[in-house]
Amino acid sequence: MDTPPEPGLIEAMNKLFGGAATTLLAAFSGRLMYHAGEVRAKRRPIWSRDLAWELPTCIGMAMVGDGLADYLALTDTQSVALVAVLSYLGPRGAGAVLERWADRRR
Rank of each mutant, 00 (worst) to 15 (best):
L32Q: 06
V97K: 04
A36G: 06
A69W: 15
D2V: 10
W101L: 10
Y34S: 03
A84E: 07
L82F: 09
A27D: 09
A73L: 08
L25V: 03
P4F: 12
V64E: 01
T77W: 02
S48C: 14
H35R: 02
P56E: 04
L25C: 06
L51G: 03
P45R: 11
L51D: 01
D2K: 12
P45A: 09
W53I: 10
P56G: 14
Q78K: 13
A26G: 08
G60R: 02
F17D: 02
W101D: 00
C58R: 01
L24A: 05
A94W: 03
A41D: 12
D103E: 13
A27I: 04
T22W: 02
S87F: 05
T77S: 13
M13L: 15
E38G: 06
S48A: 13
R92C: 03
K42N: 14
L24Q: 02
T22S: 14
L24W: 12
C58F: 11
E38D: 11
E54Y: 06
R106K: 06
P5K: 09
A26S: 13
A69F: 07
T22L: 10
A26Y: 09
D103F: 12
E6N: 03
L68C: 14
G90R: 04
L68P: 15
R100H: 11
F28P: 00
T3I: 11
T3H: 00
T57K: 02
S79E: 14
D66Q: 15
R92A: 08
A94Y: 00
V39P: 08
G65D: 10
T75Y: 01
A21V: 13
E54M: 08
K15W: 01
G65W: 12
S48I: 09
R106V: 00
G90M: 07
V85A: 09
R40N: 04
A26C: 12
L25S: 09
Y34R: 12
R100F: 15
D50Q: 09
G37C: 09
T23Q: 14
V85P: 09
I59M: 01
L51P: 02
G8V: 05
W101A: 14
L68N: 12
M63K: 02
M63V: 11
A84R: 11
W101F: 13
A52C: 04
A52H: 03
G67R: 15
F17A: 10
I59W: 03
I59C: 01
P91Y: 04
A84T: 07
M13Y: 08
F17L: 14
L24S: 08
P91R: 00
G8R: 06
V83N: 11
S29P: 05
